[in-house]
Design a protein around this nucleic acid. Structure first.
Length: 484
DNA sequence: GCGCCTTTGAAGTCT
DNA sequence: AGACTTCAAAGGCGC
């Protein structure tokens, strides 16, 4: 697997957490070609890669011109700009006075400005943590912040694209917490005997983040509950209160047994979210743009588009996000030394293994059906209506799909909209805009930017990012031969 | 109101 | 060790 070039300032850094911040190979058969084209940086394949990038950039540029708020700003909370943004802006101006006005996509567009994103995201934010002066009195008595800007008056592009963690901790007014956060948020660290082990950084981490410590202890960052004033009490974007239930009244609580209350406490523990990976950071940043360009709101479709865009990104562009994600993990690790991803296992979904097994044992389940007909489990819809959830070919009472999927792909498509042979799966979404069904080579006139927004590949053998679908077709043909 | 969808990546678990 | 599973974000949608 290709590793990030150390020269990219990336994963080769000595302070790795051990996580492989590597540019994962694409899942399609164009992987080798992509790698070769990027490695050789010459020839028609290189041109193609540039074309892809230009498509992405073009669409993103169009989005920026359309007044789409900076994706990061869009992904962030709505009303948290104000003094926070100004503070960041000032800090960034101090740090990178020459780059501040440039938007993130500017940094993405221009290879020579590839560091621009770092300036606006990783480094500015990280340096912000390092250098931004804590409020006077070691952060104990902050001066009231006058309302400096509202969002409308704050140019989106002037707001540095900050990753959630950096963004949050660099902000005097962190991501708005739930109104009842003071009642609900009981930090996991506060329930551990060793408070110092969590939000207040260890001595080693303090050495690494000297200025952030006092910043973190800013009273405005404190939770209203828990240990008032304790430096460990820091609201955090990665910390969410337990889903929505009101706490028991004291009287009710008194009725609970100790074990029950303990179990409830466990259940009500706020969840420390996983740090976002590179793709998640990218999605957060770009979602707003895609929504604006494609007038889509369905996240499933958006994510498919973003997934393709992600693959269309150059290694350097992806490296920025890998680096950002790496620093996110690093900071997350410092903030929550004892945290493990396992802590959140089972909290999000009750989609248990038994459920999966049940689904697998269901002869008409989509999974079974796709397997039966050689369809890809991840990308293929099962049946004429392309439903993921239920296999349309499953006939109740018969318990199994009656026949293999015909070779004619139109059988997979809804009437009147046959699925292209290599159509991306997002084109199969039920509510996908019809204009997006236009040929990738000939974008619909009504939405010329959509093709670019989707980063649809130019026709040609070298542009087959959805090899999954192609392999699916091969599998399908194979299954047909076997059936014959 | 919960869970699914959909994406990639990280990390945990299982075999 | 490798395969598999879960969870991060997001918002519409189905049940």
């Amino acid at each position: 697997m290709p590793q990030l070039d150390s020269g990219g300032g990336g994963a080769g850094g000595g302070d790795d957490l051990g996580a492989p911040d590597e540019l994962l190979a694409f899942q399609d058969e164009g992987e080798e070609q992509d790698d070769k084209s990027r490695d050789s940086a010459a020839g028609p394949e290189r041109d193609l890669a540039e074309l892809k990038s230009s498509l992405v950039n073009e669409s993103e540029g169009a989005a920026g011109g359309a007044g789409v708020p900076g994706a990061g700003a869009g992904a962030r909370g709505e009303a948290e700009v104000g003094a926070e943004a100004l503070g960041r802006e000032h800090a960034s101006q101090r740090l990178f006075p020459d780059k501040l006005p440039e938007s993130l996509e500017d940094g993405l567009k221009a290879p020579e400005c590839a560091s621009g994103m770092y300036k606006d995201t990783v480094y500015s934010a990280f340096n912000l943590l390092m250098h931004y002066p804590p409020p006077s009195g070691a952060g104990q008595h902050p001066q009231p912040q006058p309302p400096l800007h509202n969002k409308a008056s704050q140019p989106a592009h002037s707001v540095p694209q900050l990753s959630p963690l950096y963004e949050h901790f660099s902000s005097p007014h962190p991501t708005p917490a739930p109104a009842d956060i003071s009642q609900k948020q009981v930090h996991r660290p506060l329930q551990t005997p060793d408070l110092s082990g969590f939000y207040s950084l260890t001595s080693g981490s303090m050495g690494q983040l000297p200025h952030t410590v006092s910043w973190f202890t800013h009273p405005s960052l404190m939770l209203g509950s828990g240990v008032p004033g304790h430096p460990a009490a820091i609201p955090h974007p990665a910390i969410v209160p337990p889903s929505g239930k009101q706490e028991l009244q004291p009287y009710d609580r008194s009725l609970k047994t100790q074990a029950e209350s303990k179990a409830e406490k466990e259940a009500k523990k706020p969840t420390i979210k996983k740090p976002l990976n590179a793709f998640m950071l990218y999605m957060k940043e770009m979602r707003a743009k895609v929504i604006a360009e494609c007038t889509l709101k369905e996240s499933a479709a958006i994510n498919q588009i973003l997934g393709r865009r992600w693959h269309a990104l150059s290694r350097e562009e992806q490296a920025k996000y890998y680096e950002l994600a790496r620093k996110e993990r690093q900071l997350h690790m410092q903030l929550y030394p004892g945290w493990s991803a396992r802590d959140n296992y089972g909290k999000k979904k009750r989609r248990s293994r038994e459920k999966h097994q049940e689904s697998n044992t269901d002869p008409g389940s989509p999974k079974k059906c796709r397997a039966r007909f050689g369809l890809n489990q991840q990308t293929d819809w099962c049946g004429p209506c392309r439903r993921k959830k239920k296999c349309i070919r499953y006939l109740p009472g018969e318990g199994r799909c009656p026949s293999p999927v015909p070779s004619d792909d139109s059988a997979l498509g809804c009437p009147g909209s046959p699925a292209p042979q290599d159509s991306p799966s997002y084109l199969l979404l039920p509510h996908f805009p019809t204009e997006l069904l236009a040929s990738p080579a000939e974008p619909a006139p009504t939405s010329p930017g959509l093709s670019a927004a989707l980063s649809l590949p130019a026709p040609g053998p070298q542009q087959t990012p959805h090899s999954v679908l192609q392999s699916t077709q091969l599998q399908r043909q194979e299954s047909q031969r076997q059936a014959a």
